[in-house]
Amino acid sequence: MAIGDALTSRSQLYGRDSADLLARTLYGETENDSSSRVGVAYVVMNRKNATTGEFRNLNSVEAVVLQQNAFSCFWDSNLGKCLAPNTSSAVWKNCVNIAQNLSSFSNPIGDKLFYTVTSLFNNLSYTENGKLYYKFPGGRTVQITSKVALGAHTFFNYI
């Protein structure tokens, strides 16, 4: 099983090497945004290493990236790109490099556990009584405790 082997179904993602799964996640989530790629990789690692909160029991890259609805690149509508990445592209090669050597890259997002495209964050966030709130698409509204904009993404934590 080489990193980036073409797959035909979501079920084939289970049991893959962590670097392979992380590279596929980076490829699917940041194909056109190299500036935020390392940040997305650190979101995965922050969730994997979480000891409290909603991610505390996700102690592998596989558990984090394949958690239902966690990363849009693994939704059925977007899955094709992650199942069969263009392994000859410079983008894929960069994703693999980051996945295999993440500890050699500075963490640009600190302890952030969430991210979204900055334009969406800006459209779905508002300030009330001096506090910043974000409404997840189709979901709950949360109070933002910290955020970092990087590339085309905003990384954040909430209460």
Rank of each mutant, 00 (worst) to 15 (best):
R16T: 02
A6V: 06
E62T: 07
L102A: 10
S89Q: 05
G80F: 01
S125G: 02
G53W: 03
S89R: 06
S106I: 08
Y42S: 09
T118Q: 12
P108M: 01
L102C: 08
Q12E: 15
I144P: 12
N129T: 04
F155I: 01
G53L: 05
G130D: 01
V64K: 10
G80D: 12
Y158N: 04
V44R: 08
I144K: 14
L58R: 11
V65F: 11
Y134P: 01
H153K: 14
R16A: 01
E128Y: 00
N78A: 10
L124D: 00
G138R: 15
Y42K: 05
R16H: 01
Y134I: 05
S106C: 06
L102H: 09
T127W: 00
G130H: 01
P108W: 00
C95G: 05
T116Q: 14
Y134R: 09
R24N: 11
F136C: 07
P137A: 11
T8H: 15
V38E: 07
D33Y: 06
D17S: 06
S119E: 08
Y115R: 11
N46C: 10
M1W: 10
K135Q: 15
K135T: 15
Y14H: 14
A19P: 03
A23Y: 08
F71N: 07
Y133I: 12
S60V: 12
H153T: 08
V40T: 08
E128Q: 03
A149M: 07
Q67W: 09
S72M: 01
F121W: 04
R47N: 03
Y14D: 08
C95Y: 00
A90G: 12
V65Y: 08
I98W: 03
E29L: 04
V117H: 02
R10T: 07
Q100Y: 04
S119R: 07
S104V: 01
E31Y: 14
A41Q: 07
I98F: 04
E31F: 13
Q67D: 09
S72N: 05
Q68P: 00
E31H: 14
N86E: 10
S72W: 00
V38H: 10
F74R: 00
N129E: 01
K147D: 12
N107I: 13
N57C: 12
C82I: 04
L150C: 12
N49T: 07
L7K: 15
